[in-house]
Amino acid sequence: MPGYLTTHVLDTARGQPAQGLGISLFRITRSGREGLASMTTNADGRTDSPILPEAEFVTGTYELVFAAGAWLDSIGTPAEDPRFLDVIPIRFGMSEAVHYHVPLLLSPFGYSTYRGS
């Protein structure tokens, strides 16, 4: 089975998917971060296609960067100055060619993630 990467963002404060949240994917190499993809979540809080498709999958270290602050601003969440959560980077490894799913559970003052299925 070829590897690929998906993500999903849920707004745990409102109990619904986080539609319109920007996400960027980077590969971490010895020379730094290499940008691979940028997408926005759909009405289900997912990207319309895998953020790293099978054809581009390589094992290694990656980073998903979620534009949480901009999204919280866009939905009218009152902002502090500075906002408690702004950009959320999640660095993780993919060691075998399988489906990796890295969701983000988000609220204005906290988040969590896990390796999903």
Rank of each mutant, 00 (worst) to 15 (best):
M39L: 14
L36M: 12
A13F: 10
D44F: 14
P82H: 02
T7A: 14
P89N: 10
Y114G: 13
T61V: 14
I23L: 15
A68T: 08
G76Q: 11
V87G: 11
P50I: 03
G15E: 03
Y111S: 13
R83C: 07
D48R: 04
S24I: 00
P108E: 04
L21E: 14
V65W: 04
G110Q: 13
G35D: 08
Y111A: 11
P82A: 05
D81N: 09
L25M: 02
A43M: 13
G35K: 13
G76T: 10
R27H: 03
L36T: 00
A37Q: 05
G22C: 12
D11C: 10
G93M: 08
R91A: 15
R27Y: 00
E56S: 12
P78I: 01
G45Q: 12
D48H: 03
A67C: 07
L25R: 00
I75P: 01
R91H: 10
T7Q: 13
E34N: 00
A55Y: 00
I90K: 10
V102W: 04
F26S: 06
L64G: 08
L21G: 14
L105N: 15
D86E: 14
F57E: 09
S31I: 00
L104P: 06
W71G: 08
I75A: 12
L52C: 01
G93I: 01
E96W: 02
L85N: 06
V102N: 06
S38M: 06
Q19F: 11
W71R: 05
T41P: 08
A67G: 14
P78M: 01
P89W: 05
E56H: 02
E34K: 02
T61A: 14
I88V: 15
W71L: 08
E80M: 04
E54N: 05
F92A: 10
P17L: 04
L10N: 12
G76F: 11
A68F: 12
R115M: 11
G76W: 06
A43F: 12
